[in-house]
Nucleic acid binder design. Structure first.
Length: 557
RNA sequence: UGGGAGAUCGUCUAAUGGUAGGACAGCAGACUCUGACUCUGCUUAUCGGGGUUCGAGUCCCUGUCUCCCAGCCA
């Protein structure tokens, strides 16, 4: 199997630049989040591209906060972003920057454009600006303030900075072309007045640069060679280049790639914030969230997320990746690293009638079938056990291999048992299964070589630890959560069954398991220990279920 | 109906004028003390119409469809 990940157009561009000696072979990228929310798997793609490319070509990737709009930004977000980037393996060393570090320089550049007659202070209200911007087919109309003198503009802009004017009363605009087919050229706002407390600069500033007047310059200051962003900024690139050119500063090259979309998943910070604020989820790190912190809590490994991001490729095609592909990489990585244990989610009592009362045996169990170095542990075996409800059928359907009256199965690492009878409650439901065991099959080995069709997991009733298990389904019931009826919003697609909390019986080795550790509950799925765990009651999040061939057979029948 | 960007199996993605390949998903089987993992095999695609060429997914013309843009958000 070839694991080679094919190249992509951005890597090809870098390759060409290196070949032509464009930046003396230097590669400098950056990951530039706005600290207005938690990072999600879409950002993981960007992190993988930016840090990955830098590493691949012996370059560097900076972490830079695009913190030009204090009204939406918070230190909580800054802290979470740093943690998440590091967790994903993004190595930014000590190169952690903020656009706000550059505010003074950016301000000076704005004055420079005023001096060149390329920027003016406009007294139009936001609404008036919108009204005069024109439409796709009609040019906009020029602001009456467009022809102010350099001196007046400079004076007004300095007074804007000095705090003389209330929010929204004036703005600094670039003087470009109100008839441009590209709206970004219709005299874009460079600075707005915002008397807001900034999480880093405090109250030092009451005017803040817009994204377009900060991003390219920040890239330039950091000598970014390749400024990689998503497709919706394609229309901004001409403006990005225009500012750089008018300022005569180092020109990075902006390159756009397609934003990640995943089925059953929403990747919009604004909408994720809504889910948090309206308490549809427990927080940004709810295990159902597509955030990095949510995935971490759910048990996704950084390697799995990274492998996924490498494999989906980089293109300019707007597509939607199937959730199953992400889950494949999660299973692939967890299969390699998660230790195996036994847990019963939906217990059914089994009594082994011929097993000595009060006897306990400690059966040896391997921790990882494909990694001998993971060692072994023991699991207590006794007369009364729990098995999974699903592993017993009084009337077995076709192709059902598990326990049923008269049938022999293997208890993993235990014994072969044969079902002899059942006990039912008043409603006719089987509440207890009686079996006999074959003492010659200790450890699950049959000395006579006889085969059973099934091996099932179990826990000893007396020794089992009660645990809470949280089973997750997709947060949204619809493949495209944004596909809503007229007038409705995306929350109508929320999946009411996305969280199912169950009481489970787990093997005693799991008592006191460390939060964050990941296990495979054999035959069930991968589970991660949640920080909500106590010594008395461990709490597990189901990361992802194992593939289940029987479920498919059964579903078809 | 302006501008920008796209269109290859169900999905994502290769092929840079020369055998349309891979991964996931699906189907069938082998193996198995996890109906897991692994392994084997199979199904399925170049948006339409013209043209250039010995040869076109790729080049040209034309049509269609999809996404983005009228924040003092990023």
């Amino acid at each position: 199997m070839s694991d080679a990940v094919p190249s992509h157009f951005i890597r090809d561009i870098i390759l060409e630049d290196i070949k032509s000696g464009k930046h003396d072979g230097r590669v400098q990228t950056r990951f530039p989040p706005e600290p207005n929310g938690y990072l999600h798997v879409g950002h993981a793609k960007s992190i993988t591209i930016n840090f990955g490319l830098a590493e691949e070509f012996g370059g560097l990737c900076n972490l830079r906060f695009d913190d030009t709009n204090p009204s939406k930004e918070e230190v909580e977000y800054v802290d979470s972003i740093i943690e998440d980037v590091r967790w994903l393996g993004g190595d930014f060393g000590d190169r952690m920057f903020y656009a706000s570090d550059y505010f003074e320089q950016i301000y000076q550049w704005a004055e420079q454009l005023i001096q060149k007659g390329l920027a003016y202070v406009c007294d139009l209200t936001g609404e008036q600006v919108r009204e005069t911007r024109g439409t796709p087919t009609e040019p906009g109309t020029e602001s009456p303030y467009r022809s102010r003198s350099v001196e007046e503009n400079l004076d007004l802009f300095r007074r804007m900075r000095a705090g003389e004017f209330p929010d929204g009363t004036r703005a600094l605009r670039a003087k470009i072309d109100m008839a441009s087919p590209n709206f970004n050229f219709r005299d874009p706002v460079m600075y707005r007045i915002l008397h807001a407390h900034h999480h880093r600069t405090g109250d030092k500033w009451c005017i803040y640069p817009m994204y377009d007047f900060a991003h390219g310059q920040s890239d330039s200051i950091e000598r970014i060679t390749h400024s990689i962003c998503t497709l919706e900024f394609e229309d901004h690139r001409p403006l990005y280049d225009w500012y750089i050119q008018q300022l005569g500063i180092y020109p990075p090259r902006q390159i756009e790639f397609d934003r990640l979309s995943i089925t059953y998943t929403l990747l919009s910070k604004r909408k994720l914030l809504t889910l948090v604020q309206d308490k549809h989820v427990s927080g940004w790190n709810d295990p159902r969230m597509p955030t990095i912190s949510g995935m971490r809590r759910r048990g996704y490994s950084p390697e799995a997320i990274s492998n996924f991001c490498k494999r989906i490729g980089v293109s300019k095609t707007n597509g939607t990746t199937e959730l199953q592909l992400l889950e494949y990489y999660v299973r692939e990585d967890l299969n390699k690293h998660a230790l195996r244990v036994m847990a019963v989610l939906d217990p059914l009592k089994v009594v082994i009638d011929n097993y000595p009362e009060g006897q306990v045996e400690h059966m040896a169990a391997v921790n990882h079938p494909e990694d001998e170095s993971a060692g072994t542990r023991t699991v207590p075996f006794s007369k009364v056990l729990y098995i999974e409800q699903d592993d017993f059928r009084e009337v077995p359907p076709p192709k059902y291999f598990r326990l049923s009256p008269g049938r022999e199965v293997r208890l993993r690492y235990g014994y072969f048992i044969t079902c002899t009878s059942v006990v039912k409650d008043a409603a006719g439901k089987v509440v207890e299964v009686h079996c006999t065991y074959d003492p010659a099959t200790s450890g699950g080995n049959a000395p006579d070589g006889r085969k059973v069709k099934s091996t099932i997991h179990w826990v000893s009733a007396e020794h089992a630890v009660d645990a809470e298990v949280r089973i997750y389904e997709t947060l949204f019931a619809k493949e495209d959560p944004n596909d809503v009826p007229e007038g409705a919003d995306f929350t109508v697609n929320l999946n009411p069954k996305s969280l199912d909390v169950q009481r489970a019986k787990v093997e005693p080795s799991l008592r006191g398991a460390a939060a964050g550790s990941r296990y495979q509950f054999e035959r069930l799925g991968y589970f991660a220990v949640d920080a909500d765990s106590t010594l008395a009651v461990p709490v597990f999040n189901r990361t992802v279920a194992l593939r289940d061939a029987w479920a498919k057979i059964e579903a078809k029948a």
